[in-house]
Design a protein around this nucleic acid. Structure first.
Length: 741
DNA sequence: TAACAACGCTTTTTT
DNA sequence: AGCGTTGTTA
């Protein structure tokens, strides 16, 4: 062992060392939140290479997200001083499967240049099939069918293997669609996310020599976030694991939050039954959070059953108590949190150290509005995916069609975009003809230019389009992919269409297309670009700059922040109503694990909050407030680690968070009465707030911005011209009168 | 065919 | 409030 290797081993605790040095045979690492599991995994990989147990390309290392994979790659390379291509098989299940499938596409009847469809393409395809089969779209919602297909794939079930035991019509229809769907995918040379993995499994099962070559190559296997693997992923792993059984999985049953995607905690619970002589290592020391945070999180998760029973502990200081705040409504919550950030945190922490983690994506909106208003920079992580934007998809579909004429979905998307007077009726005709002639849409369109199927005007328009695509196809052999895109956007009239629009949105779209061009330069040719773009979540999430982080709890998995805000801890939102309706107590337990993940993201400061009223669906009528109750999870937190602030409820000293949950039925319950009282009070507050006492031209003073003058009034929001900090919008309650000379 | 109004549904979480 | 689907009109 060389010097630097022993150095980095010294920085580890006993269990961590144990996990790293136990290189042979099955190993299960139960790693609590913040227990240094990434460190263990990266060090383990580095150690295998340094000890010459194998080459970097003989290690299969599977992570859950691209972000995690990139981070691991960086850290391993740092430890081994190696080149970036030295661990080629480090990636997500999907990206590794993609790589395998490109090599062996023919084994499942595909060409290596297959396209990966995203969720929207999938849905569109299902809709098309439903239309062609004359199946009622209302009785058979495409989304439900997509969901069922996904579930079957997660269970490794091809159409022929699906068993439906009841006379469940929606499932019978869905299965029928599934069959056609798979045929269509093959004809278009496309796969969906689920196929990436399932096709690999099929190949491993049907082609022993291919399976053997991988089994032989992968001397060591490592799997991160094992608690979130589903049946087909686990099967995939088993098929690729060789007789030496050098498989090391890392997971935390308390952090299993993807059962809705087919994840089976069973995999981690039964790992030792599957592999005899499994070595189990528990990492229980938390290096991330203060004692108060860890103890709060532990008290919550202890309410779950069926745990493997880790006891995580922290050696760090107690730290501040976890704060629980109550607000009158969602907007108030956003205001309150931004106040805490400005008044308490900004002095000690970078904005990058601050995160707001929400249960559902729509919750970020109120915070965005607030931050825009007061001028605090923020970033939303994992929001709109770059390649999902309409203009990007349009551009990609042009390229997809150029590269692969049988991509009907691409054809359909761009045929009338920009408008070419080729509308629904023409498209319907094309679809029908293509089905009877057994040709793809492009071929069919090309063919009927010589026939009398279409009106002359439509025919001419279609002719122009076909001609353009053919020209681009020829050009694609001479030009590089970036130049090709430029030609396409130009000659198709797409750019001109956006320029003509003259709206800010159109300008943003043009900007996005520029960004697309820039990102294409990272790939050497069109095929390579198209092969990889679909698996890219977004074009390198910009982490640069000083910004507050906004994201869902799911997206925050694996991350940590000094200061964490957890808003919206209300019954119905968290735990979410839908999840409870679907799966009852099992779902509540998963929601609780999600809450546990949320709590354990925090290193130093943790703020939980709930609002007494929340508006859903962006309803602006003041009477459409949904009354909300504090989440049961707040009740489950051990109070000795909390500091509770009932800012919106100062009249009720012995207020308890646990209110009567079924208040709808029992309207005379104390909880209901209290709610009515609160509602009255909130109305009063809002009323007085809207009538501000300040007048335009008046001198005012603000705690942080100093002195200034009122220049505009909008309800209780005032635009102030501050002497030192310029124009800012503030709410009147933060202003004092200041009579200037 | 395209442009526009009306309507109803939505929001759980994602590779 | 925002989107997609449906209906109406030029």
């Amino acid at each position: 062992m060389n010097e630097s290797a022993s150095n980095y081993l010294n920085a580890l605790n006993i269990q961590q060392k144990e996990a790293i040095l136990h290189s042979e045979g099955p190993l299960l690492i139960l790693a609590g939140a913040g227990s240094g599991k990434t460190k263990v995994l990266t060090t383990r990989v580095a150690q295998l290479i340094k000890d010459k147990k194998c080459f970097g390309n003989q290690i299969l290392c599977v992570t859950f997200t691209n972000k995690a994979a990139n981070e691991m790659r960086e850290r391993v390379l740092k430890l081994t001083n190696n080149k970036s291509n030295s661990i080629p098989w480090l990636g997500t299940f999907h990206s590794i499967s993609n790589k395998i499938l490109r090599k062996h596409a023919e084994a499942v009847g595909l060409k290596p240049s297959f396209t990966i469809l995203d969720t929207l393409d999938q849905l569109k395809l299902i809709k098309n099939i439903l239309a062609a089969e004359n199946i009622d779209i209302k009785k058979n919602p495409p989304k439900l069918i997509a969901y069922l297909i996904d579930h079957w794939k997660n269970k490794a079930l091809l159409p022929a293997n699906v068993k439906i035991n009841s006379s469940d019509y929606s499932k019978i229809n869905a299965l029928k669609i599934y069959k056609i769907y798979q045929e269509r995918l093959r004809l278009m040379n496309c796969v969906d996310f689920g196929d990436l993995i399932l096709h690999c499994v099929t190949i491993f099962k049907n082609f022993k020599e291919i399976q053997e070559s991988f089994k032989k190559n992968f001397k060591y296997i490592l799997v991160d976030e094992y608690q979130d693997t589903n049946y087909v992923q686990n099967l995939w792993l088993n098929l690729i694991t060789n007789d030496s059984k050098n498989i090391c999985v890392v997971g935390d049953d308390d952090q299993s939050i993807y059962s809705w995607r087919g994840a089976e905690v069973k995999n981690i619970l039964e790992f030792e039954k599957n592999f005899t002589n499994t070595k189990i290592v528990k990492l229980e020391q938390n290096y991330r959070s203060t004692k108060n945070i860890i103890n709060t999180a532990s008290s919550l998760i202890s309410n779950n059953d069926d745990r493997l029973g880790k006891k995580i502990w922290s050696d760090l200081k107690d730290g501040d108590k976890v704060r629980v705040n109550s607000f009158s409504d969602g907007r108030d919550e956003a205001t309150g949190i931004s106040d805490i950030i400005e008044k308490e945190l900004i002095k000690y922490f970078s904005l990058n150290d601050i995160a707001i983690l929400v249960r559902a994506a729509f919750q970020t909106r109120e915070f965005e509005e607030r931050f825009i208003k007061i001028g605090l920079p923020y970033r939303v992580i994992g929001g709109m995916k770059f390649y999902e934007r309409a203009e990007i998809k349009d551009a990609l579909c042009y390229l997809r069609l150029i590269q692969q004429k049988n991509d009907d979905l691409a054809f359909e998307r761009i045929i009338n975009n920009p408008k070419r007077s080729i509308g629904d009726s023409t498209l319907k005709k094309l679809h029908d003809l293509s089905r009877t002639r057994n040709k793809n849409l492009f071929e069919t369109a090309d063919e009927i230019l010589n026939e009398d199927e279409l009106k002359p005007k439509t025919k001419e328009s279609l002719k122009q389009f076909i001609k353009l695509v053919k020209t681009w196809t020829k050009l694609s052999e001479q030009l590089d992919h970036v130049q090709l895109l430029e030609r396409v956007l130009d000659e198709s009239g797409y750019t001109q269409m956006l320029i003509n629009e003259k709206s800010p949105e159109a300008e943003a779209r043009l900007e996005n297309l520029k960004e697309l061009r820039a990102s294409m330069k990272n790939y050497s040719n069109l095929v390579e670009f198209l092969e990889n773009i679909s698996l890219q979540t977004s074009i390198d999430e910009e982490w640069e700059g000083e910004k507050i982080n906004l994201m869902t709890i799911h997206a925050a998995k694996g991350l940590e922040f000094n200061c964490v805000f957890l808003p919206g801890w209300e019954e119905g939102l968290f735990p979410h109503q839908k999840s409870i309706e679907e799966k009852g107590d099992q779902a509540v337990q998963e929601e609780r694990r999600l809450a546990y993940v949320a709590l354990t993201r925090a290193k130093q400061r943790l703020f939980i909050s709930f609002a007494n009223n929340r508006k859903y669906y962006g309803n602006n009528n003041s009477n459409d407030w949904m009354p909300s109750m504090p989440s049961r999870f707040i009740d489950e937190l051990d109070k000795q680690y909390l500091e509770i602030n009932e800012t919106a409820k100062d009249n009720d000293q012995d207020f308890e968070f646990s209110q009567d949950f079924n208040f709808m039925e029992e309207k005379k319950s104390p909880g209901w009465k209290r709610y009515l009282q609160e509602k009255e009070k909130i109305k009063t507050i809002n009323y007085t707030n809207n009538l501000t006492n300040f007048k335009i031209g008046q001198g005012v003073e603000h705690e942080t911005f100093g002195k200034g003058k009122v220049i505009h009034i909008d309800g209780n929001k005032l635009l102030i011209n501050f002497k030192d900090s310029g124009e800012k919008k503030v709410i009147d309650k933060y202003l004092k009168q200041f009579d200037h000379e």
